[in-house]
Design a protein around this nucleic acid. Structure first.
Lengths: 303, 303
DNA sequence: CGGTGGCCTAACCTCCGGCAATGGACGTGC
DNA sequence: GCACGTCCATTGCCGGAGGTTAGGCCACCG
């Protein structure tokens, strides 16, 4: 009778991809049998077939066509609902949640928190680490009011961004790597190296940190890592190399890994993001605070 | 991240009742701990409290107030979606689903089926038995296009009805009951008898078959039964008595139970119901067919 | 004709959602 | 003041849902 919104998400994914395998792997990060089973179950619940899989290809039935707009609308409605709830909770608790897509230094966190407190007396800023695979860094489902993340952010529809700093991209190498002794490294040196990539679910972020734009041929992906720890463990083990931002070379310093500047890569941009429709003053204050903190200035006490 | 629509239904129930215990028992037919756990889980997912249970009473928090309209909208949207899908499926399969709230005789079923087939060449009428506790007899979630049910039907908002027959109400007694030998029975004779009632979830239907309108004091409810078999087993066992429609006295004839007319009760009405917004010709044809079949006339071949 | 791609089925594992019983906080009546 | 009733939370348990991997069937293609 009722339905799980997840099932509708699955349905929309298949309807848009017109392929179970691709929808499962590339958009939903589940196995294809799991997806097939869920769709079957949805069809059973509705007592009708939603897809025609007869002729080797997948297409929507009339019933599927009827469901699709409703499913999209319900998913959008839930995003709205979660955002509304988050805003109401923030207002009554006087708390702003900030999601960190990368591990920012404690300096930035503290500066932002202090600045918010100074400009919004009685309010607090809370920080939450969000996984790199979360498409909108926790903004979409309302759990986070402002996100600090590297551009590009996948699923960025409906999000606004302000770049708060730009940094050069460096490369992380195992300690004994042939390039570890070089003083200057250009991307051509790395072109054929095996890379540790972000999970496929990260979408454009994965492509950016593989420097796909700078390549003529597909990269060699030797492994995937969802967290920074996994990433540098893989680098240290010699499985592959990876790009990172200059600021993170300090944060993730370790003995078995060396970081070197790549001189000819376009820099990466750290941005503060918020929901475009979110016009609360608290959000604007936080974004401003992020910008000031990233600029290295302390919150200006009496400008 | 995603949410189960059931949880939103639970939330709306508690928000409207402002009581966990009542919402669980009277509206959702689940236990109170299950409801509490689900609401807690929803709150955890949204990372905020939806209800304030601190001062012995239950009230909505600001976040709860923010969620309520969205939740209602999503539930309505899903009802729409299910109806749309059902209509699309019916159109492409040329099938009309008819839900039976009570066990109608095969005569009625066959007459309707034949009539539909005669007037909508290529179409079929399929019948499904729906439980008495289903608020809208399967109409709400689109699984059924036309329902045949006794009035009043709970949750009847958005439904249209046409009365297709009226019948006197009789009473079902165990074989040796003191009233079994009486020729005429008035409701006053039954007033203090223990009754077998429909489950509380049946709402106004339960009240109607307890003849609540004809009483000055609350009825004695000796037990509940969800199916006809349970009901007459309970009557035969002497646990209590129950009202039924005249037509059903034939359908449910058995040795250990006797049926007697109650001469002074208002009759009951059997109706064909459909979704008010559903203007498909197939639905109209079926409703007409129900009316003709109930009137005892065969489908008019060449009127 | 064998390889490949794509969906389905089967077996299994984990965790969620339900129930029953119990506990604790608070208001109420004698 | 104390026993009691009411109502929500907690605990322990069980069945089913949702996920995984492994393997099968079928169409297409070189």
């Amino acid at each position: 009778m009722d339905v799980h919104l997840r099932d509708l998400r699955y349905f929309v994914a298949v309807a848009e991809e017109l392929s179970f395998t691709r929808a499962a792997a590339e958009r939903l990060s589940i196995s294809q049998p799991a997806l097939s089973k869920q769709i079957r179950q949805l069809e059973t619940r509705l007592r009708t077939e939603l897809f025609d899989r007869s002729d080797g290809t997948v297409s929507l039935t009339a019933a599927g066509e009827a469901l699709l707009p409703h499913a999209r609308k319900m998913l959008a409605e839930w995003a709205d609902a979660a955002a509304s709830v988050g805003e109401a909770a923030a207002a009554s608790q006087q708390t702003v949640w900030i999601g960190l897509h990368t591990r920012a230094g404690h300096a930035l966190v503290h500066a932002v928190a202090a600045d918010v407190e100074a400009r919004l007396p009685g309010w607090r800023a809370e920080f939450r680490q969000v996984g790199g695979t979360d498409p909108a860094a926790g903004l979409a489902d309302g759990g986070v009011d402002v996100a600090i993340a590297w551009l590009p952010v996948p699923g960025g529809a409906g999000l606004s961004a302000r770049v708060i700093t730009t940094e050069d991209r460096w490369v992380s190498l195992p300690a004994g790597h042939r390039l570890a002794g070089r003083t200057t490294i250009v991307f051509a040196d790395l072109h054929d190296e095996p890379f540790i990539a972000l999970p496929a679910a990260a979408g454009p972020m994965r492509e950016f940190w593989l420097a796909l734009d700078q390549r003529g041929s597909p990269p060699v992906v030797a492994g995937e890592a969802a967290t920074a720890e996994e990433l540098f463990d893989a680098v240290a083990a010699g499985i592959g190399i990876a790009l990172l931002s200059e600021g993170n070379t300090d944060v993730y310093r370790r003995d078995d890994v060396v970081h070197r500047r790549v001189v000819d890569l376009p820099p990466c941009e750290l941005a503060a993001l918020w929901r475009s429709g979110d016009r609360r003053s608290a959000v604007r204050v936080v974004v401003d605070a992020c910008e000031r903190a990233a600029a290295g200035r302390a919150p200006d006490q009496h400008e």
